[in-house]
Design a protein around this nucleic acid. Structure first.
Lengths: 359, 359
DNA sequence: CTGGCCATCGCAATCGTTTGCGGTTAAATC
DNA sequence: GATTTAACCGCAAACGATTGCGATGGCCAG
């Protein structure tokens, strides 16, 4: 659309695009510095600067500064197939779990000169595929993925194709994809130790979906912990939620209650599931923690202001994101460094939703 | 890095890049269809398809499909200076106010074939400048901005430069930049009407920052409403928060309490400020709503599970985002349509934090 | 039968960088 | 003083698409 000035080529050799404030290009600074564009390119890039004389490097950099030159990432990306960009795939930004992770990611990416493309999948496989395709066509240099399911062919094939990626919060079975998650098992152990210490013996678990690693790891850890403390190991005390959200948490809780098996405490797969429990408590006039104690998982924001404040296990979300980003950058820059995975420590945040059993 | 095959040009004319699964390029499909790349380009683009014969168009599209051709957005963007991309500038994704807006934006962008670059500014002017620069260098076609301050020279200069943008949640003074916000004044009116109806006569306001439009609009609306209902119009009942967050809300509340002016209700500038009040209530043993009623603004998630559940004015965040995106697309496609601004209706969500004054 | 018009398509330039290669110059060697 | 050597820099070809323009051919009208 630019009115390409009529083909009167280089009338003077110095002035280009006089009228519009088209941002200056590399050629502009090259001309200003009296060198060829190639030289300017080398002078501006620290990695190639040693190929030009110190003097011309100075001249070029000065010219760049006075012209306010900003390299065009698109042209660069086209040429180099690099983009200084990574894709971040989350199920839903609206889930308070993810923004802190994203912030952690962005913080480390930013200082490394990278930026993040964020996409939501809404847990829809097809949408996930198209979003990731779009990321790849934009030449992202790697992927940080928060939507991993245990069985995830898409990730498998991406991995085979050599796409650099790291998983956050989740792992996938049988694949050597690096991940960084919270210490799920440790967190659950903390939770049931706390409940056992309060005197609970019949503790239920509202497990997350069986197709996510967090779901199964936490559920398994729960059964281990129950046995370790020699509490009631009753399969009827375990219910599974289809999704990590309030509605399914509430459903699971109702199911548990309707089943009639008595219990005095429940460790929820995560905070949202715990919130679902709160809803059911309100429905049925159950009081927490007097009738039933609840502990959540994640320590998402504002839990301290709930009625009652939710006891939960605190997870360093920002750190998870930051570590994941660091690992991805390692993958990208150091080609074949064997990057192992990371389990970040958690802590129990004791608030008002847990108490001694009334009985 | 691709091992550019030695300059044995077009040995057969058909095979390129046999080894690697380098994605097919436009030239590949052109060859496959037996036409020139230019023709292929025209055939693939609906807008130019009429320039080629129906038959070759079919051939090209078939070839594209069988090769799995995906146009390279980077090359396209370099040539056309378009990117099918818009920038979304928010202060902090971690604030639950913004994710729903972002989702709304993405939903309408997606069906239009656009996608969104999200950046956080942390309310830091310098960071804001650099992030927006980076967006522009990536050729975003427009900006959706949620960080507007009333006096915002940066936005002014962008606007002068012809950068398409629309503001969400905020406006800026003296500038004809289209915006879409909630009906702030209407929401405040609803809130004080509710409180007045309950019998409160001394109502305080914890105003948002004076440098944001929402802050001043809500504060002004508050004073109007107070006068309309002929309640105590005492300047000592108004405090201002430096930021829209819990900590500053708590500070303002403490200031109000320490001032000694009596009041029985407070309308907070937004939900986070209201949460700050909750903190102070806990500190000082004040009970809500018995001693003081509180109403927030925004109806962010999980407010219904607070102690007590927060009465607040509900804002259609998703719609705000969606409308903003629609307006921006209009700006981009229709060049000089006079796009006016939008005020979306709000509603009062009455919960447990408001009650009749005890006195 | 010829001229002209239109539909169709190819040519080549272009967007702004990066980078292999080759040429120039000055310094270093014997 | 001739020749090697290195440092420095320019040339031009990419990357993958879009697009103005011109060439070609077929078709119809005169």
């Amino acid at each position: 659309m630019r009115p390409d000035q009529p083909p009167v080529p280089s009338q003077e050799g110095t002035v280009r695009r006089t009228s519009a404030q088209q941002p200056p290009t590399l050629r502009d600074v090259a001309e200003a510095a009296g060198v060829h564009a190639a030289t300017a390119s080398r002078a501006l890039n620290p990695k190639t600067r040693r190929l030009v004389s110190a003097d011309t490097a100075r001249r070029v950099m000065k010219a760049a500064k006075t012209l306010g030159y900003q390299p065009n990432p698109i042209a660069r990306s086209l040429k180099t197939s690099k983009s200084s960009t990574v894709g971040v795939v989350v199920p839903d930004l609206t889930n308070p779990l993810f923004p802190p992770i994203v912030r952690g990611i962005e913080n480390v990416l930013e200082v490394a000169g990278y930026s993040a493309w964020i996409v939501n999948t809404d847990n829809d496989r097809e949408r996930e595929r198209t979003r990731i395709d779009s990321l790849r066509s934009r030449h992202v240099e790697g992927l940080i993925i928060a939507t991993a399911r245990l069985d995830h062919p898409l990730l498998g094939s991406l991995h085979e194709q050599g796409v650099k990626m790291v998983l956050v919060n989740r792992r996938v079975e049988d694949l050597q994809i690096p991940f960084v998650t919270a210490d799920d098992a440790g967190g659950i152990a903390l939770a049931v130790r706390h409940l056992a210490g309060l005197g609970h013996t019949r503790i239920a678990h509202l497990a997350g979906p069986r197709n996510t690693s967090s779901g199964v790891v936490r559920a398994r850890a729960f059964r281990h912990a129950i046995r370790d403390h020699e509490l009631e190991d009753d399969p009827a005390l375990i219910a599974e939620c289809a999704y990590w959200n309030e509605a399914d948490g509430a459903d699971a809780m109702r199911g548990l209650l309707d089943r009639g098996t008595p219990f005095t405490a429940v460790v929820a797969g995560n905070d949202l599931i715990a919130l679902g429990c709160y809803d059911v408590f309100a429905e049925r006039g159950i009081s927490c923690p007097e009738d039933i104690s609840v502990v959540g998982f994640n320590d998402m924001p504002f839990l301290d202001k709930l009625r009652p404040p939710l006891t939960t296990v605190g997870v360093p979300h920002g750190d998870i994101g930051a570590e994941a980003a660091r690992m991805l950058l390692d993958c990208i820059e150091g080609p074949e460094r064997q990057s192992h995975s990371l389990l970040l420590p958690v802590s129990l945040v004791i608030r008002g939703s847990t108490a001694r059993p009334s009985a």
